[in-house]
Amino acid sequence: MKFGILVSEGPYTHQAADSAYLFTKAALEKGHEIYRIFFYHDGVNNGTRLTTPPQDERHIVNRWSELAEKHKLDLVVCVAAAQRRGIADAEEAKRNGKDGDNLAPGFRISGLGQLVEAGIQCERLVTFGD
């Protein structure tokens, strides 16, 4: 089955980010297709490479990046939600006159249309949120 995934909560604060990852991993292992993972609301915080959890804790951001690289996943961070929360790639940072960027490898920043389009293209759009 072709799945789209929506992640609506931030890492470490809420289990949604973990559940989304574990669901995605399990679905891929079962041979399903993950068309896109869209990060919205505080979910955009899953995409900052500045995340530095204690070493004996899971690294939620790196975990996404690694999974994306292994399975060529499309990890999309909502641009409007990202701007509010200070998540930027190099291009966005430059456009907004910021002195740094923080988007993690494997993620890209794009618009909300990508969420709606995933809803149209996928057989199931699964939300992980509050």
Partner: peptide, 19 residues
């Protein structure tokens, strides 16, 4: 919380897809 505002943003953007 921000959910209401960001939900409205999805509805507005989504409208362009004529669903």
């Amino acid at each position: 919380t921000i959910y209401a505002l960001e939900s409205l943003e999805v509805v507005l953007i989504g409208a362009a897809f004529e669903q």
